[in-house]
């Protein structure tokens, strides 16, 4: 898939998710590297701890190549109904969700096989 198409799909699905909550402010930030990219989405809506836990679990779900290449085509495209972040979770390398102000910040990291995610300072998981 062309990088531009992928980015458009990811932004579309994430925007659909955050706009479901009717936020007053949304910031979408894209940082591209040669072999990877970082997408950050910030909103100002209140989210429960359960919501955030579920969101992080969905975005960091196990990789499903048999579903990603086929059903992943619907990411950010077929938006009638609830947003489906699992479509997105299968296609990214890593995600973090943190509280920021009243809302949350969702960080998504993507990259090819040669992509070195350390350049983007993915936080180490605390044991």
């Amino acid at each position: 898939m062309k990088r531009k198409d992928l980015i458009l799909k990811l932004i579309g699905e994430m925007a659909s998710y955050v706009l479901d909550e009717d936020p007053m402010r949304v910031v979408i930030s894209l940082h591209q590297e040669e072999d990877g990219l970082h997408l950050a989405i910030i909103d100002d809506c209140k989210h429960s701890d359960e919501d955030i836990e579920q969101l992080e679990k969905t975005l960091n779900s196990r990789k499903r190549p048999e579903l990603a290449a086929y059903y992943g085509a619907m990411t950010g495209h077929d938006l009638l109904g609830s947003s489906r972040l699992n479509l997105l979770g299968w296609q990214i390398k890593h995600s973090d969700v943190v509280r920021i102000g009243d809302g949350i910040k969702i960080d998504l990291w993507l990259g090819g096989e040669r992509f070195d995610s350390r350049h983007f300072n993915i936080p180490e998981k605390e044991e």
């Binding site: 086929y70 059903y71 085509a73 619907m74 495209h77 077929d78 009638l80 109904g81 489906r84």
Partner: peptide
Amino acid sequence: LPSIAVSMLHLHQGY
């Protein structure tokens, strides 16, 4: 089939 299958998904959006 792969090309058709992906296009058909968009038609009903997974329903």
